[in-house]
Amino acid sequence: MNLNDVIKKLEDIKILPVIKINDDNKAVSLANALIAGNLEVAEITFRSEYAASAIYKIKQAYPEMVVAAGTIINTKQADEAIQAGADFLISPGISEELIRYCEKKKYVIIPGISTASEAQLAVSLGIDIVKFFPAKTSGGIEAIQAISAPFPNLKFIPTGGINENNINMYLKNRKVIACGGSWMVKEALVDAEEYEKITELVVSALKKVSVDQERN
């Protein structure tokens, strides 16, 4: 998947569920729950040893589902994620070494930033889209507005402290293409296999985004 395809998919859906999977045997059932709610995208974080195998199982079951590998912090993880079938990579911070490596390998990577200096570094490395993390504690939408001003072509995916009650505050900003969040797919819900609840939360989130976007 190229960057333009990633951007279009995220702009269409507007929500990127951020998921930690502690048992890869639950991966396909979790994907079922997301798809049942009409959310065919997921970020599987490498904060679990099962991340790569979970990505593999999801992509084998649903090749059309867009799956990102999150919390990628080194080149080894980047290779593992892509080999497992991840469509693109997301890192919590910005690393020139990692970005250069992904550029060489033709991997799509979205690095994390939270300051103007990091935004400038991202732009200097040819990055068009960044994860703004942790969004809430880094100043929220006001910080994005301030940081984005000198970088008119930079787009943002804020993540961290975002939920159904504040997501549209971010999405109303034209520099924000989507928001990452875990409130629909909390670790405890996944561990407890509460898939119907996950679907219910996904439906509610997408409805909230759709209704509010229609008003603007």
Rank of each mutant, 00 (worst) to 15 (best):
E142F: 11
K175D: 09
L125E: 13
P134N: 07
I73R: 13
C102Q: 06
R174H: 14
K9D: 10
V66K: 11
K155S: 12
V176R: 06
L34C: 10
E193D: 11
V176A: 09
V185Q: 04
S48L: 06
I177F: 05
S29H: 11
K131C: 03
P134S: 06
V66Q: 13
L89T: 01
E11N: 13
E49Y: 15
D212A: 13
L3D: 12
K104P: 12
K57F: 14
S124Y: 04
G37E: 04
W183T: 05
I82W: 10
N173P: 03
I7L: 07
P150T: 00
K197D: 14
T137G: 02
P17D: 11
A68P: 10
K136H: 14
E118Q: 01
G126N: 04
I167Q: 15
M1D: 12
A68E: 12
L201D: 14
Y56E: 15
K20D: 13
I147R: 02
L34D: 10
N25D: 15
I129V: 14
S91N: 06
N168V: 00
G85R: 06
R47V: 05
K76N: 15
N165T: 12
I113F: 00
N163S: 12
A42T: 05
N4G: 11
V211D: 14
L189K: 05
P152Q: 03
A119G: 09
G161K: 05
A31H: 05
I141P: 05
L125F: 00
D87T: 01
Y50A: 14
D24R: 09
T71L: 04
K106Q: 15
F46R: 04
N153I: 03
A42L: 02
T75N: 15
A143N: 05
T137K: 07
V66E: 15
K207H: 13
K172T: 12
G37C: 04
D23Y: 00
M65E: 03
K9L: 11
G139Q: 06
A116Q: 09
K8S: 15
Q145C: 08
A31Q: 08
I129D: 12
K208S: 14
E103N: 13
V108L: 08
K172Y: 13
I177P: 07
F156Y: 08
